[in-house]
Amino acid sequence: MILTSPLASLGRATQAMLAATGRVALFAAAIVSHIFRPPFYPREFGQALMQIGWYSLPVVGLTAVFTGGALALQIYSGGARFNAEAVVPSIVAIGMVRELGPVLGGLMVAARVSSSIAAEIGTMKVTEQIDALVTLSTNPLKYLAVPRVLAATLSVPVLVAVGDAIGIAGGWMVGVQRLGFNSATYLQNTADFLEVWDVTSGLWKGAAFGFIVAVMGCYHGMNSGRGAQGVGAATKAAVVGSSVLILAANYLLTEVFFSA
């Protein structure tokens, strides 16, 4: 009994995790199926684009500029060990567009957007606004989740693209001002070593991360418990869940995109 109880606990936890994964997958599938079926809510979609895309620009931009600068310093000091300081522009560019731009952008959007979606929808559930939607012949999934998921899936790649550019600019600024690179040469090296697929692969990742962020926010909001504690728990679960899923999806997508 003593020996089997840890196994039983592990089994229960695994079972609960698999069940939760299944529920999230079914929820995501339902959202995708509703994207293509009327009625459509263009106004809600427009508002979601503003909330998720436009208002996330400052936080993504700031994250990118500091990351690009730090990356330039790291590569310069690391590269100096084997006289490879000259690779700073190309490594900063590739590192930003392939990996750091989409991942850090996704994580920042997860922190900002997933939490706000979960809290907003969770509060709507607690205050019976979701029930009110149903009585007004409106499908809450279609009205609340679809516009947000669509907006996040479309706007996060744009945020990633902007973040990539700002991150590279951050690296250039540190490279030129702090590390003594020639400005034109730095930019030339960046352009020469960057391939189109480096950029587009990052944008595809951004789309996947945007989808994850919005689905997790909506799922946890709609399944929020009662009261302030329930909404708080839903918000926390949305941020933690989307962050972990972003990192897991990043590994899987990198395997798919770049494994030899």
Binding site: P39, Q47, T127, E128, Q129, A132, L136, S137, T138
Partner: peptide, 26 residues
């Protein structure tokens, strides 16, 4: 039609949009 205990008005919509919710959709 239903009147909910706490009103269940949609915070993001103006009062008239709340009242006319069903008349603006479906």
């Amino acid at each position: 039609g239903m009147l909910f205990q706490g009103g269940a008005l949609f915070d993001s919509l103006k009062v008239w949009e709340n009242v006319a919710f069903r008349l603006l959709r479906g």
